[in-house]
Design a protein around this nucleic acid. Sequence first.
DNA 1: CTGTTAGCGCTTTCAA
DNA 2: TTGAAAGCGCTAACAG
Lengths: 333, 333
Amino acid sequence: MTEPVGKIRDVAKATGLSIATISRVMNGGKNVSPRTRDKVLEACKRLNYLPNPAARALSTSRSKTVAAIIPTIEHLIFAKYIASIEHSLAQRGYSLVIAISHGDLDEEYAAAQKLMGMGAEAFILSGAHHHPDLLALFARRGVPHVFSSIWDPAAAAPAIGYDNTALARAAMTFLAEHGHQHIAVLHGPLAESDRTRDRYAGAQAARADGLRVEFHETSLDVTGGKSATRALLEAPDRPSAIFCFSDVLALGTFFALSEAGLRCPDDVSLMGFDNLDWSRETAPPLTTIDLPATQMGAEVGTQLMDHLDTGAPLAPMRLEGAIVARASVARRD
Amino acid sequence: MTEPVGKIRDVAKATGLSIATISRVMNGGKNVSPRTRDKVLEACKRLNYLPNPAARALSTSRSKTVAAIIPTIEHLIFAKYIASIEHSLAQRGYSLVIAISHGDLDEEYAAAQKLMGMGAEAFILSGAHHHPDLLALFARRGVPHVFSSIWDPAAAAPAIGYDNTALARAAMTFLAEHGHQHIAVLHGPLAESDRTRDRYAGAQAARADGLRVEFHETSLDVTGGKSATRALLEAPDRPSAIFCFSDVLALGTFFALSEAGLRCPDDVSLMGFDNLDWSRETAPPLTTIDLPATQMGAEVGTQLMDHLDTGAPLAPMRLEGAIVARASVARRD
DNA sequence: CTGTTAGCGCTTTCAA
DNA sequence: TTGAAAGCGCTAACAG
């Protein structure tokens, strides 16, 4: 029943040509007469021939595989990003392998070693903070890699992403312009993400404008947002606005507010970060920061493939985020 | 700066052993004296040697790569599932490549061809409904594959998953037991998913108990849930309960209810499907159906690897979902 | 326990 | 435009 997969030899035999010619046809068909080429293609179809990727990779030292190591896939902003990378790579016959680091540098390092051992030719990492041995390994072996989800022209590798610090700063300014002087900031574990630390720095800078800013660290999920908000509401002096470093946290805040009988934005204004699909649907719609996750995935993929294919240099690139003003932030006088 | 990667020869030369011995050490180190083995391992470390995966794959005809084609990654239940598969495969040195089908049979077929051409040894598909040519291709080339997210012992391939029909049926019974006689069902596009069709069939079966059931198809996201609910509330005869085939839809329903000034569960009871992380945090907490996504990922991975490694047969397996009763469903008399 | 050797299937000069 | 042949780096008999 199961017939063995055809090899290049079978096609050569079937067409009366040499395997070299078959190979040429399979790789763009340059320097091959149209007739020959058609004959070969026909035979390939008929014999159900697919070039063996391992043989090809061994021969060319190219696997056409790039690796992405991400902190988590269970967060829509990453899922969106990954989907975009995959799409971009697939366009040009590349494939994507992924690993999850859980925000841990050692796990990331281990995953990278495994992926290198699997033949990944280039790496996509999140943020600029990584295991020194990993960076050393990349350098030693000349493995192309980029950092993403950040903008930092001084980073150890080309960074392709948005400026978390500036965006958080802009959000604070936005809130201040709406009359908010006392703002609570909810964020995920600082230890796990330099992107979070960047946003933290940006929000903190708003103190220079005379804002009162309080920070609350919690787990990066709806539960975390809800419990942190609950705790925060119990304090005697309630902030007039809450700024969550993720829409996911903001969703938890919505639930906590509703449970506490408080109304948004009448009692408390709320701002998120990510602009996830549902954020326009909340009641009230959530003011948030739109992140170019899809664009970032495309850019990262394209740059890496260009570099791999033609040696084009990798270049840091700043992508723009944008405040999306919706009803969850009210003017406060 | 960038030093060439070490090859097995270099290690052999460095240790004064033959490449065969190095190879043995790299593959479990059976039939190798401890001393030799240590010497080799040390040299590998020192020379920064990593076996070339392409050469290994070519030689063994094994890529240790399995492919999963999923409808979307931008839905937490799939992200969770994928994370679990990746974890399970990684345990044994396998890797996962993924492709997104957008619920389209042709896209799925195209993706599968590409992944086969990349060396995937086994396939994980969602549901039982696939392009006939794809199944024929698998059969012809003897490619191991499983269907997942469904339970159907009669399917064309071993199905590892839960019984969507029975679970939807159970949910309807649960609602009926709480006194609900008129139930609205919200679901995603029937054309895109046989899992949805199974759930539909299960919900429809509840009519046999004298229930009044109305179905509303919408897009499978928060926006879809919200707009469908909004439309449904405008009808003169409002159902006493809404059953969403995904928690994501249910979140939209929550927003629509709140916008309409209706309270859950006082005015309308609500039930979801998936038991996503946040579903216990909504106000009120969402009654839903817990799906064993993580367990399913582990089982699928293990079965495929066992089959690939030892030839163990793939076997259909039924995993249990469970109703999680929370406050969003109230008793109606 | 260790070494020799023949491929694995394909790409790629180099000749023709 | 086509063919012959030399590897790519590793594994797996088979010998010793």
